[in-house]
Design a protein around this nucleic acid. Structure first.
Lengths: 200, 200
DNA sequence: CGCGTTTATCCGAAATCCCGGACAAACTGG
DNA sequence: CCAGTTTGTCCGGGATTTCGGATAAACGCG
């Protein structure tokens, strides 16, 4: 489960307060006082969520939202808003903000919302990682000569055995159910060097 | 993206209202007036989310929550609550409810919350499906002798080539880059019969 | 039916592989 | 430091594989 919370809030008092609330919940706030400072942290693979004030001196919280969405549409952005800005905040939610919090808010409410956002972010990233892995595995190349493919597979098996045995050839041979010398023969042919698996 | 919303609400008026709101947003409400009726729909693989009143004649919304969580801890349950029940609702959120909505609520707010819940549910289920697929593929048995494993792999490659060529051995041999006779030799050793790939 | 193609099997020789034995070098741990 | 173990390499012969050639049987099609 992720724990990072990129916090963008210009009011030092409120920022410190939120920071403390999050820290007490075993979360990892990354406090900043302005959007420009937070910019570089906002990436498509950011392993956390964003919590930003909606009204700030330099930049609007809306810009934070748009910037974040431009980097990653599934990156949760939560907005802190004053009472007068609620209609704006609700529109922001429709535009892709994860949630808004009306000031002053219950610390527990903040924690709940942030926690849910982090859960969501966690599964989204897991999802992507798995999808990538799946895409990698599936396209088994059905091309190449039989002998080449078998050789490649044999290399893979032998290297795996060597890795499992910390590069000890005799043990690997035993594990593979073949005489030690035979394994040396195969390794020579495949140009596998045992030392490479032993440096641990 | 999922769209089902299991709606548990005993007040016919409110139920119809919510149903209409959801339908207008291209969602699929499944309205019921009591927990007992909804029970059988609540499964670990339920492809949707749950929206339940927290105060009902027969059963408490809490029980819905607990029942749902017992089936699937990642099944979002949202609770409709009156003003007096807000502390209860907030505790429910800490206990795993996805969100609570204070009556009377803005329809747009309802839609936003439900939509977010559905997004979350969608990625969670995708996640599980992929995990299962990954678990199936990955556990390559790292056991057995080298020769046996290679033989198994060779059989797989040959059968795949035969399948691709409709069981014509000569063509398969060509595809595998080996002489036709050699392939016959291998097939004999591996007890592969070409006819089995030809009846198509 | 008759002819060309494809399949399936047998043969034999060259190439390759498997595997035990042997041994020096390197490593290990009392 | 030294005895015991492990590593890496070489050897050699028996087993296996490879692969072209040959051939009979089966198939496909006009």
């Amino acid at each position: 489960m992720l724990r990072k919370v990129l916090l963008i809030e210009d009011d030092p008092v409120l920022r410190a307060s939120i920071e403390q609330t999050l820290t007490l919940q075993d979360l990892e706030p990354m406090p900043t006082n302005a959007f420009t400072l937070a910019r570089r942290s906002i990436r498509s693979n950011f392993r956390g969520v964003i919590l930003s004030d909606i009204r700030m001196p330099d930049k609007d919280g809306f810009e934070v939202l748009q910037f974040a969405k431009s980097k990653d549409t599934e990156l949760p952005v939560m907005l802190l808003t004053g009472h007068s800005d609620i209609p704006t905040a609700m529109r922001a939610v429709r535009d892709g903000a994860y949630e808004y919090l009306e000031k002053p808010f219950d610390p527990q409410r903040l924690v709940d919302v942030v926690t849910r956002a982090l859960e969501h972010r966690t599964v989204v990233l897991e999802n992507r990682a798995m999808r990538e892995e799946l895409d990698q595995d599936s396209p088994e190349d059905e091309t190449g000569s039989l002998t080449e493919r078998l050789k490649a597979h044999e290399r893979q098996i032998i290297e795996q055995a060597l890795l499992a045995e910390g590069g000890r050839v005799a043990a690997a041979a035993d594990r593979l159910g073949i005489p030690r010398n035979t394994l040396y023969d195969r390794m020579t042919k495949l140009q596998i060097v045992a030392k490479a698996f032993r440096k641990a």
